[in-house]
């Protein structure tokens, strides 16, 4: 194997692990499991737990995907496996 595909995959899994932890914490953590506790805290006219469940989690989801796109672009280039340049990829 000419590229370090194993190293690339490991780094990829680390990125996924970090981002999915955030995904879990904001939705299932803040929005569901901790909602009662967070609701004690006022937040711009919302109760904080309610805000996470009906607004905040969704904004974080969007941000997570764009952070992922950015991190993966960097990782792809670092390991020389980026597809940004092969514009005329032939598919079966």
């Amino acid at each position: 194997m000419k590229q370090d595909n194993h190293g690339y995959w490991k780094a990829n899994l680390r990125i996924l692990g970090a981002l999915l932890s955030i995904w879990f914490i904001v939705s299932f953590g803040f929005g569901i499991l901790l909602v009662e506790e967070l609701n004690q805290i006022p937040f711009f006219g919302f109760k904080l737990g309610f805000w996470w469940a009906q607004q905040g989690a969704i904004y974080v989801f969007v941000a997570l995907i764009f952070v992922y796109i950015h991190l993966m672009q960097k990782l792809d280039r670092k390991y020389g496996v980026s597809d940004e340049d092969d514009s005329s990829e032939e598919q079966s």
């Binding site: 995904w23 009906q54 989801f61 992922y68």
Partner: peptide, 23 residues
């Protein structure tokens, strides 16, 4: 509040899709 199951459920799935399946 319970409506949040649809709000988070139908958007959070895209994080899974983007990170774990689509590419």
């Amino acid at each position: 509040y319970d409506g949040a199951v649809y709000l988070m459920g139908w958007t959070g799935g895209y994080v899974i899709l983007a990170l774990l399946l689509a590419p």
